[in-house]
Amino acid sequence: MTQRPVVLVTGVGRRVGIGAGIAAQLARDGWDVATSHWAPYDERMPWGPQPDDPERVHADLRATGARTVAVPADLADPGTPARLFDAVEDALGAVTALVMCHCESVDSSILDTTVESFDRHMAVNARATWLLVAEFARRLRVEPGTGRIVAITSDHTTHNLPYGASKGAMDRIVLAAARELQHQRLTANVVNPGPVDTGWMDDAVREAALAPNPRGRLGTPQDTADLVAFLLSDRGGWINGQLLFSDGGWKA
């Protein structure tokens, strides 16, 4: 049997999340899948703790024939990316693709955002992305042209200041990798999935997000997973250094 390539998907703490949808699709496509999660983040969010979800996600992945490992990872700690890659390599081997779905996301505005919250958003969404990309590049030992980096972003800014600002910084870091790491012939892209209800929408938000979408529905994790899977495939190898909107036309 041909050895399955290994992908690391960060931010897979909940079975209904975009990260879990991506991980499941990649496992079906023939990847071995490592994931990271951080339960204290979920505990602070409206959906609350879901301690069984990481193992439920991995049961789904194993059912496809994928080898898999779940690693708790506090990405606010600058030492975490190196330890995360160590753990994944020990369990599954060298990583061929990095898909970053992790985030810190707490609603606040210009006048009420705290310095502590702003700094944590920057640490998790921007600094950790830089450190993960750098760690991935230093360890990449695959045939030139097969390495892949994808990050999930958002353009939400109003009343979501630290999230939007840190995601904007994240975009620039990932897009820079397409040029700065060109000697490795990898690809680096950013995907904006638009509004996807993974448990954070109330009825008013859901209605406001649904009304302007030309496709007449909200996005799903599978919609994002389909694009990410293509970007990680051989057929997606000519797409590089792009911020892609996969939102059914919502932004249009």
Rank of each mutant, 00 (worst) to 15 (best):
D223G: 00
A208I: 00
A204K: 13
A209S: 14
K167M: 12
V228N: 13
M170W: 10
L232W: 13
R185K: 15
Q222S: 13
A188V: 05
P221W: 02
D203Y: 04
R215E: 13
L175H: 00
L227C: 06
D155R: 14
F230C: 05
I173D: 05
R185P: 01
T153D: 14
H156I: 10
A176P: 00
G164P: 11
L218T: 01
A169R: 04
N192H: 14
H159N: 14
G219C: 01
L232I: 11
A229E: 08
G164R: 05
T187R: 14
T198H: 10
G216Y: 11
E180T: 13
K167Q: 14
H183I: 00
E180I: 01
D203W: 04
L175A: 01
G194T: 02
M201F: 15
R185G: 00
G199Q: 07
V196R: 02
V174T: 11
L181S: 02
T153F: 02
D202P: 10
T153N: 14
A211H: 10
I152E: 06
A204G: 03
T198P: 09
R206K: 11
P195Y: 06
P214V: 06
Q182L: 10
P214A: 04
W200M: 12
V190N: 06
V174I: 14
T157P: 00
S233H: 12
I173M: 06
N192Y: 09
T153S: 15
I173R: 04
E207W: 00
N192C: 09
R217I: 03
H156P: 00
T153E: 07
G194N: 03
Q182M: 09
V174A: 12
A177C: 11
M170C: 13
P212D: 06
L175R: 01
Q222H: 13
P214E: 07
A208H: 12
G199R: 06
